[in-house]
């Protein structure tokens, strides 16, 4: 089992990375062949990602919702699923390279930073035994995935002179992510109230989630009310995702707090 999950994670990393490279090549050269192979790689990756979650569930003997390795698997599985949905719906493959590179790097972070987390059977500590954990983590995964997808689109929109990626689509995805992040924060507060007896304690993870939420709230207001569109708006979406990554990695590895086990 331990070997199995290691193999799956490496294969997953390669599938996503290959997908990214093929998307970049295909978009640059306009070769349809490369682009459809890229899509295929991503679909294989998605299956591997789901397999990783199933194997992890078997190893842990519980739903994999607790440590950062487990969360990263949810993060990428939703990002990639959303991306594939977007690709099918918008019939555009322009953002594939950026989104898959982000996903590959996230899986890479499991290999580099979270070694051994997925191979060991680690029971939940008492504070994590709550139905609110499930809903808090799953909404967070969807929120982060939306922001990753939006950032991927925004990067490609900035990088290319001519693009079919519109502000409208980026705005919609950010709006979806914002709703999910709002739910994540409220569910997290409800849970913190039950587990620790205070719903908001300015612990670093809470604080940085709030900061992330604020930047997207600004984006939504500026986008609609002041008509900030195009490059400035896209830069904000990318900055927002940098904050997402800091809330996830930076807080876990640089600042300490209640959440530091996750």
């Amino acid at each position: 089992m331990k070997l199995l999950i290691t193999v799956i994670i490496y294969a997953l990393f390669i599938a996503y990375l290959l997908g990214a490279v093929l998307y970049f090549i295909g978009n640059k050269s306009g070769k349809k062949q490369a682009l459809s192979t890229a899509s295929l790689m991503v679909k294989i990756g998605l299956v591997l990602n789901i397999a990783a979650l199933i194997v992890r569930t078997m190893i842990a003997g519980r739903l994999p919702l607790a440590n950062s390795g487990e969360f990263t698997l949810w993060f990428t599985v939703v990002t990639v699923a959303l991306y594939l949905y977007y690709e099918a719906k918008a019939k555009m493959r322009e953002a594939g390279g950026a989104v898959m590179l982000i996903s590959a790097l996230l899986v890479g972070s499991i290999i580099v930073l979270m070694k051994g987390q997925l191979g060991e059977a680690t029971p939940l500590m008492p504070a994590l035994k709550s139905p609110w954990l499930t809903i808090h983590v799953l909404t967070a995964a969807v929120a982060y995935a939306c922001f990753a997808l939006a950032a991927g689109l925004a990067i490609m929109q900035l990088a290319k002179a001519e693009t079919k990626i519109t502000d409208e689509i980026i705005h919609r995805i950010v709006a979806g992510g914002f709703v999910m992040l709002s739910l994540t924060i409220v569910f997290g507060a409800v849970w913190a109230e039950q587990a620790w007896g205070s719903y908001w304690s300015w612990d670093p993870k809470e604080t940085w989630a709030l900061i992330t939420w604020i930047i997207y709230a600004l984006y939504l207001h500026l986008h609609r009310r002041l008509g900030w569109k195009g490059k400035t708006a896209s830069k904000m979406v990318i900055a927002g995702f940098v904050l997402v990554l800091f809330t996830f990695f930076g807080v876990n590895y640089l600042l300490s707090g209640l959440h530091s086990y996750a």
Partner: peptide, 20 residues
């Protein structure tokens, strides 16, 4: 309101990093 939000966000960032 938006200016205040920026202030709260920046203050929280600085506060959590240096004087948690």
């Amino acid at each position: 309101g938006l200016v205040l939000l920026v202030l709260v966000g920046s203050a929280a960032a600085v506060g959590s990093a240096f004087l948690p």
